[in-house]
Amino acid sequence: MTLTRFMTEHMPHAVPAKGNISISTFANSASQIQLFDSNNMSRQAIRRHIRQERNSITQDEQQQLALIASRHLLAEIQRLNAKRVALYLTHDGELATNKIIDALWQQGVETYLPVVHPFSPGNLLFLKYDKQTEMVENQYGIGEPKLDASKVMPVNHLDVIVTPLVAFDASGNRMGMGGGYYDRTLAQVVENQPLAVGFAHDCQQVSKLPVEYWDIPLPLIITPTRRFSSIG
């Protein structure tokens, strides 16, 4: 079964991705989105507000939005012909990735999950993830593969890293939970290898994020209704 067929059969409500402009829309509803005015707000205040907004989405809405956004993201992965994709497991109202993982498994695309590095504070390792993977819970209450050095994949050997985020703006700036894990990971990326892709609800976009020297903008962000890209 191809990814295209999987998306058609399992994600019937999604709208096909299109366009190579900086900001393209997948649905007319994109024009109705009102951005949260984050000007003159602290990072902590923005993070608190957006997390509340994200967690206020009902379970039914979460499922529908995740199906739609997943189709767009799978289209990008297919376009890139990616063979090794790192994702995350849903936590704290994030867009669910389970349908994406299922589709990639069916196609034989290797999937990886982040693991908090046991010896290098603030850093991540990426371990192979499949149906037989033994999972443990890390200090943040998030499931991750049990550490096994034989299953670690170096960042520069991945094709795509799908990154969680709390907030973003139209320039591709990303705000995470504040631990800096993905900032340190993205600092290892050279010439978009691997390609870092943000995956977020539309309500997570703000007017402008305050940027620190360590922040690295994302070249591509996918939401249920839009595609933000600096790579075409």
Rank of each mutant, 00 (worst) to 15 (best):
T2F: 11
T2E: 15
R5F: 13
M7G: 05
M7E: 10
M7T: 12
E9T: 11
P12K: 11
A14D: 07
A17G: 11
S22M: 14
S24T: 11
T25N: 07
T25I: 13
F26Y: 14
A27S: 13
N28T: 15
Q32W: 09
I33M: 11
I33E: 06
L35T: 06
N39E: 14
N40D: 14
N40K: 13
N40T: 12
S42A: 11
R43G: 02
R43D: 03
R48A: 15
R51A: 09
R54V: 05
S56P: 11
Q59E: 13
E61K: 12
Q62H: 15
Q63G: 14
Q63L: 15
L65T: 01
L67A: 15
I68L: 12
A69C: 09
S70T: 06
R71A: 10
R71M: 11
E76D: 10
I77Y: 06
Q78F: 10
Q78D: 15
R79C: 07
R79P: 06
L80V: 11
L80A: 10
R84D: 10
A86M: 04
A86E: 00
A86Y: 01
A86N: 02
L87K: 04
L87T: 10
T90C: 12
T90V: 07
E94C: 09
A96P: 08
I100R: 00
D102P: 04
Q106H: 13
V109A: 04
L113F: 08
L113W: 03
P114E: 09
P114A: 09
V116G: 04
H117N: 14
N123H: 15
N123G: 06
L124A: 03
F126L: 06
L127F: 07
L127V: 03
Y129I: 00
D130L: 05
Q132D: 14
M135Q: 06
N138T: 03
Q139C: 09
G141K: 07
I142N: 08
I142P: 01
I142S: 09
G143T: 07
E144V: 01
K146N: 07
L147P: 04
D148I: 07
A149L: 14
K151E: 13
P154E: 03
V155E: 00
D159N: 12
V160D: 00
V160C: 03
V162Y: 01
L165E: 00
A167V: 04
A167F: 03
A167L: 05
F168D: 01
F168T: 01
R174G: 00
M175I: 02
G176P: 02
M177G: 04
G178I: 03
G180K: 03
G180H: 07
D183T: 05
R184A: 05
L186K: 01
Q188N: 08
Q188Y: 04
V190N: 12
V190H: 14
E191W: 13
N192Q: 12
L195V: 11
A196M: 09
A196P: 01
V197P: 02
V206K: 02
S207K: 15
L209P: 00
P210V: 07
V211N: 02
Y213L: 10
L218H: 02
P219V: 08
P219H: 09
L220H: 02
I222H: 02
T223G: 08
T225F: 12
R227C: 08
S230W: 12
I231W: 12
G232W: 09
